[in-house]
Design a protein around this nucleic acid. Structure first.
Lengths: 203, 203
DNA sequence: AATCACCCATGACAATTGTCATGAAATGAT
DNA sequence: ATCATTTCATGACAATTGTCATGGGTGATT
């Protein structure tokens, strides 16, 4: 008789964490062995409980789900990772694939598909919605490294003068980088550009 | 023998919708009779299934959870409402209370507390985290009606000239309203002011 | 009736952001 | 080695936002 698939769930919203555990524990062949509310706790518990599979959100305190997946890969921990996140973001999907993630699902996927996805991954398959790939993969990050840094600081609320000081550049330079980013992203101003970049996973 | 508490869940994320249904159906005295992914669907199903209690998110398509609660109250539909939302927002909490909501919970509440909250509400009690009330009730909305309208349009990406045209005011007036809002909210610029207002539930 | 506080409204001016032209350095292709 | 392209960098100037002084209308208070 095959043993149950041991699952660790990482999700910072306690309500979803508990509800997902309840949902997955309904399946005869699943066992939720641990839960974590942030990335570091998840990594610690992966070592401790040695689950077959980790189901993780992306945006969590201390370590994102993608960084968690990267660490699991770096340490050759023998478990698969499925990402369950709110938004389809090109930057996140790309980084998740690079980090060895075997599943990438959105939270607006019907819950019935989750169990099926877990079984598919445990059989060696991958579960990434083809539509998702199609709609995001072509989204190449158009930002240069300096543009991204400047935009990140705009997102943090700094003025161009402060950004210039922080990056050891002159204000004119920063204004130019921001203006380039605004154009590339089709935004009306630098703050909207920062929002778009974050939304795409490029920040 | 008492009948089971009939519950309708309204939540636009399918994964959470199904997981919450699974969680609640584990309780012997609960029965999830319907699920809805938006406010209008929820209202239709409240009429059709006549649940004892509605568990609803706030931000959903077609009708917010608070508007749903208001409609349930307006139509004297005999069921209680518990709001389950992501953020503690003063404006939302106030409007939820005014709409007759009996429970207001955050999604980072442990899932074990949900069943208890539902039973408390069905016994005539209210479930609003006192800390939540303490931390948000004092947050009086400092914005005047015209400031709010101008800020809303900033949030929608309009320039001050366009906002002036839209509100049939002169640009100087709009600049003044936005400047007032920036000061009141302690923001660095009008876009940040709009973000803060939205976050507080004042937009 | 007079006064005060607040909202609504406007424009002058200061401060800041965004565009654009320009040029050096780095990188990749030939 | 050379050339083309891209990135990085800067400042002048235009465009836009934000501050501030000013004043009318409304409602509450004295």
């Amino acid at each position: 008789m095959n043993e149950k698939i041991k699952i660790l769930i990482a999700e910072d919203q306690s309500m979803l964490l508990g509800a997902l555990a309840a949902l997955l524990n309904l399946e005869d062949d699943f066992e939720v062995v641990a839960q974590a509310k942030n990335g570091q706790e998840a990594l610690d518990k992966v070592r401790q409980y040695q689950p077959d599979l980790v189901l993780t959100d992306i945006e969590m305190p201390t370590m994102t789900g993608i960084e968690l997946a990267q660490e699991i890969k770096n340490q050759d921990l023998p478990c698969e990772v499925i990402v369950l996140t709110t938004f389809a973001r090109a930057g996140f999907l790309k980084r998740a694939m690079a980090a060895g993630v075997k599943g990438y699902m959105l939270k607006d996927t019907p819950s019935e598909e989750l169990a099926t996805a877990i079984r598919t991954v445990m059989k060696g398959g991958k579960v990434i919605d083809p539509e998702l790939v199609m709609e995001t993969w072509h989204d190449m990050d158009p930002l240069t490294d300096k543009e991204r840094r400047a935009l990140q600081l705009v997102a943090d609320g700094l003025s161009t003068d402060k950004i210039a000081a922080r990056l050891f550049l002159s204000p004119g330079t920063v204004r130019n980088y921001l203006s380039n980013a605004v154009s590339k992203l089709g935004a009306h101003n630098s703050i909207e550009a920062a929002r778009i970049a974050r939304q795409k996973g490029w920040l």
